[in-house]
Design a protein around this nucleic acid. Structure first.
Lengths: 191, 191
DNA sequence: CTAATTCTTGAACTTAAGGTCTAAAATCAG
DNA sequence: CTGATTTTAGACCTTAAGTTCAAGAATTAG
């Protein structure tokens, strides 16, 4: 019993995620969160404990959403290389077409927190590992489909792709589309 | 005339750079800077104007120092690929062996400031372009030396290397040495 | 309807960030 | 020395970040 919540926690977390993503962790004040969510500061603290905890939930949501999108996108018809290229292009486009050049929340987090926050670092690491797993799985799928060489080391290749992806998203903050596309081409030129 | 400065501005900028690098821009308070440099807050403001201006000088110093080190290191004896590999290994080792996993100041800056700061973004872009220029120059040198194929597009290859480097430095915050070395191997496996 | 319980919210509180200012200290030209 | 000039350093100020709180508003069990 008790008074029912006047908001959907998941929705608020999603809105908080957007705000943190756009303005950074330090750059987002409780007042910003209240405004972005339409929930008063006091209620936010009542429901989520602290800015830090809300952020953890937002980052977690980010990771889950991201890997769902990735998985779905990679599994569409095409060869492994085609799908991965399309995915990279998608991300570059999303980074550039948004009004903010906000990049990847997970990367931003680990950059902003440095090694100084154990929990944040772990959370980001989990997100990255999941991405690598998805890449590796798609490559192995390609091997079964016959569009990827049998003797490719899927894990090594997936790590490489993750590095490229991370690099692209850093560079998407300061370079423009043709450059980023060219990097994608070079990175995927090999086998 | 007038009372002479009791500190060397360049030294203070270097100390400020270290502090910003370790703690991030937002994470560094004027009090931190005073402690790190041994110069009182008031004097810092008197000499450098604002935290933001001091940071700009620190970032500039970082860029110049970095490109000097890079240039020197790439020009040591060896093929282009050998030198670039050695350079990547050097950076990974520096990232991991420091006590802080602070990564690259330029990247941290652009991540922390997002697209929200025009000047910081420009400064980082200049630093990145300089790095790319050095990579391209080393590749062209390799072509003259005969250890790099004539038909390699030096600029495209340099952009690719910069992306890998950026990716490595992001991943150096959450992954350990063998993984990073493996990425270097994969990235440099081609021609 | 009442009580127990849970939410809501703006006010209030505490701490510190970022910056300004002033009185004293140091230097040098004359 | 004197005066002009520049630095120094800590006190001081203002604003806001992050959080807590008290008082009231919903809701349901009984």
């Amino acid at each position: 019993m008790g008074r029912p919540k006047s908001f959907e926690p998941d929705v608020v977390i999603a809105q908080a995620m957007e705000t943190f993503w756009t303005k950074g962790y330090a750059g987002t004040s409780p007042a910003d969160l209240a405004e972005a969510t339409g929930v008063a500061k006091g209620s936010l603290y009542h429901s989520f404990g602290s800015k830090r905890e809300l952020f953890a939930m937002a980052l977690d949501l980010y990771g889950r959403t991201g890997s769902e999108v990735t998985e779905e996108f990679l599994s569409r018809p095409g060869t492994a290389k085609e799908r991965i290229r399309a995915y990279f292009v998608l991300l570059v486009d999303m980074d550039l077409d948004g009004p903010a050049r906000r990049g990847c929340l997970a990367q931003n987090t680990v950059e902003e927190f440095g090694g100084r926050d154990e929990e944040a670092t772990r959370a980001v690491h989990r997100i990255e590992e999941r991405m690598i797993g998805l890449f590796a799985a798609r490559i192995e799928q390609g091997q079964r489909d016959g569009d990827v060489d049998r003797d490719v080391d899927a894990r090594a290749q997936a790590l490489f792709l993750q590095a490229i992806l991370a690099g692209l998203r850093v560079m998407a903050k300061t370079f423009d589309r043709p450059v980023l596309y060219q990097i994608i081409d070079t990175a995927l030129a090999g086998p």
